[in-house]
Amino acid sequence: MTDCHTVQQSFDDLRAGTIRPGQAAHVRRHLQRCAACRAFYQDVSHLRSALAEPVPPLPRRLSERVKRRYRLPQRVAVAAMLLLLVGGFVLRTDLVGVAQSPSFVEDWTRKTIDLALDSEKALPGVHIRLELPLGVEVEGRPGERVLAWQDDLDAGANRLSIPLMLEQGAKGELVASVEHDGRRREFRIGLGEEAR
């Protein structure tokens, strides 16, 4: 009986492949001669199947409630594309395209700005700074007009999506700047009515 108990407690290790080879052989030999343990093994499989039965779907209202509460961003089409080329220590900027498809939440408009920072080599300790006009917020950072942080850029593409919330009637420019090793480049992106 003790052996049956040990064998039945080994089923999970046997399934997971984490059992020692010698122990696995012992369990298999035991299963061949013990009908009770074979039946137990079958029942465990059936039990797992029953527990895998579907449950009612996640209520949409829960998902919506959570999103409203925390204002989780819904990805929208790229609102604007800014390509900031960082070649070695020399910074250059180019505007390569503008496209937008904002969504609307109450009196606010969502808009996502994608920054592409391409670097020919890895650049450690790059200072990145965003300045926002009145009536514009980064989603999840209400009331903050300036966001600044330091980060390392990888060689190649570094993409930064900035989810913005624009109050109705808000306009102005988002000023993005990148600074490294005493060199600084700045780029301005029009936001608000005139940019829609």
Binding site: Y70, R71, L72, V138, D151, D154, A157, N158, R159, L160
Partner: peptide, 18 residues
């Protein structure tokens, strides 16, 4: 990804969602 790391710096809600 680099995208996620930068995103996390900016948006707690987005990082929470992710």
């Amino acid at each position: 990804s680099r995208l996620i790391r930068l995103w996390q710096r900016l948006s707690p809600a987005a990082a929470f969602d992710a």
